[in-house]
Write a protein that binds this DNA or RNA. Structure first.
Lengths: 197, 197
DNA sequence: GCACATCAATGCATAGTGTGCAATATTTGC
DNA sequence: GCAAATATTGCACACTATGCATTGATGTGC
């Protein structure tokens, strides 16, 4: 039952995207605060009540659903014995390869963030799910005692990845499979900045 | 006009704290979601309307006002030419020395976070102001081109500091002036984890 | 100390968010 | 096709948050 099969599921995915596109275009046109959930629902052709069946709140509709490790990747990670960071980045590569990224939507998000920097917390907050998953993977290596360290590492990785997403959205020549590499370069810079400790 | 002097300002500070204490104790007793702004206002002896004159929203009342670099510290940082990270940590030391930390309140926050982990984003979000200030300081050294790197570094520092706050809240034997040192140790660990890049 | 400016506290009205519930429509499995 | 499962919707409601006008307390200049 892992694969989405039915018409129902395909429609659900389509509606999710339609709502997000409606939310983004309205926010770009009128500003985030001026957009109401009722406007988004109307634009997406659904009722306000149904809007809340799809997204928990207005913020979630803007950023969409975050990607998520599949069991296969988790299993690979647990089996591998390479260096922690290299394995985490490899897991992220698989994650991104699996999820079909929509550069158009990412561009809209990026433009919105440019005009409304106060939305940045919402955007980076949407990476929380991913961050928690990275942290969970890291904990399997470092042990439960090092959970806080794992979370700190995961935070840095997720942040670097978020930055890279925005670069990718605005650079049509950059292929999606280079995202993790660029993020790794950012982590290298961070490593250098921390060297003086 | 830098020093708060008048009765009015002292009362304001007192009310700010009273509201926060009310919010925290109510949240610990009934759970965050079950607490309304009206309840907090009643407990603090003010009207609901006045509550919103003090805090922008319910979240802000829980975490209280974040500390903030004073001009003196900023001036020192800009004049200094030591290693970036060392200077940032030194600035944070001055910041913490200036702000009178209330371990009791921090303990309440920590206990609340234990019972309601979904409040963690609110807590770490409250460090955003501090993170932005750290990033701004770092940008004066690294240059505007490296803003994203500065922000990534600031994020890591703020996160480590937040973790350390929780440790400090629960360890009565730990003096406040060791907070930055422990945070630095956490950053050292992060540096080690990033070494494999 | 008095008069006046300034700012704080409050009530009231209102827009918007988000949830529970029940009724209705649609999809799916058989 | 039929019945079970699930989705959509309307409605009512509690709560958050803001604007505005009023009243009262505080600060300042004289």
């Amino acid at each position: 039952m892992a694969l989405k099969s039915t018409l129902r599921d395909r429609r659900r995915l389509q509606t999710l995207r339609e709502i997000q596109r409606a939310a983004l275009s309205l926010a770009l046109r009128h500003g985030y605060d001026a957009v109401t959930t009722e406007m988004i629902a109307a634009q997406a052709g659904i009722s306000q009540r149904t809007f809340f069946n799809y997204y928990l709140n207005k913020d979630a509709a803007i950023v969409g659903e975050a990607p998520c490790f599949d069991e296969e990747t988790v299993a690979w990670f647990r089996a591998s014995s390479g260096p922690l960071l290299a394995d985490l980045l490899q897991a992220l590569r698989q994650l991104l390869a699996g999820s079909e990224l929509d550069r158009g939507t990412s561009q809209l998000i990026d433009r919105l963030l440019d005009t409304a920097p106060d939305l940045l917390p919402i955007f980076y907050g949407s990476l929380r799910r991913l961050r928690d998953q990275i942290a969970a993977l890291a904990v399997t290596r470092l042990g439960e005692d090092a959970r806080r360290d794992a979370e700190l590492l995961a935070e840095a990785i997720a942040h670097a990845l978020g930055d890279t997403f925005r670069i990718w959205a605005n650079d049509d020549t950059m292929p999606a499979d280079r995202i993790v590499d660029v993020a790794r370069a950012k982590l290298q810079v961070l490593h250098g900045l921390l060297a003086q400790v």
